[in-house]
């Protein structure tokens, strides 16, 4: 009897012990995969810093000044790019010596495709511009800021949804993506 029960006793507990860890391992693996998926979604390009570097151009038209801006909650690249573009348009704190986008410039949309960010601007920027000096500095700050986001190398500008050669009455060519090497 004992010999007969022995193997049965021995085999049943073994079977139970091997199933429970398997289920646990599978659950942990699934959870890990799900967590990784969520993490990947929220950090598409791996940027998870709490601040981003936003640039503005001083009124000498040449000097770029970086300043740290506290990032909001989402950390995916598109959200960060939208946030960064708005920060550039808003400019540095009031009282700072800076060349700023015309007040009333609106960031309509930001997309990120591969290493290229597309920034769609409208509002005051779509009206005839004043001089090449500010125009160049404004876009220099925007391009430097966005290409500071990990994975973004160039910025395509759209004005009111369209690719344009330059701003109305403008000078800087905008129908090709801009990169830091443009300056």
């Amino acid at each position: 009897m004992s010999q007969a029960r022995g193997p049965r006793r021995a085999s049943r507990p073994v079977a139970k012990r091997s199933n429970v860890p398997l289920v646990l391992v599978a659950a942990v693996a699934l959870a890990a995969i799900a967590a990784f998926g969520i993490w990947r979604y929220l950090n598409v390009r791996g940027t998870a810093a709490d601040t981003i570097t936003v640039y503005y151009c001083k009124t000498d038209g040449a000097t770029l000044v970086p300043w740290k801006v506290t990032l909001g909650m989402p950390h995916d690249a598109v959200s960060i790019a939208l946030f960064a573009a708005n920060q550039v348009i808003a400019g540095p704190p009031s009282g700072t010596d800076a060349i700023r986008f015309p007040q009333g410039t609106v960031v309509r949309a930001v997309r990120v495709s591969g290493s290229k960010a597309t920034v769609d601007l409208t509002g005051a920027i779509a009206k005839p511009q004043e001089g090449s000096f500010g125009e160049s500095a404004q876009f220099k700050a925007l391009v430097w800021t966005l290409t500071g986001i990990r994975g973004i190398d160039s910025v395509q500008i759209l004005i009111a949804g369209s690719r344009v050669a330059t701003l109305p009455g403008g000078h800087l060519e905008l129908d090709q993506p801009l990169a830091r090497s443009n300056w």
């Binding site: 000498d60 038209g61 040449a62 090449s132 000096f133 160049s136 050669a165 330059t166 000078h171 800087l172 060519e173 801009l178 443009n182 300056w183």
Partner: peptide
Amino acid sequence: KGLRKEDFY
């Protein structure tokens, strides 16, 4: 105000 390189069309 200097000599500058720019992507002017």
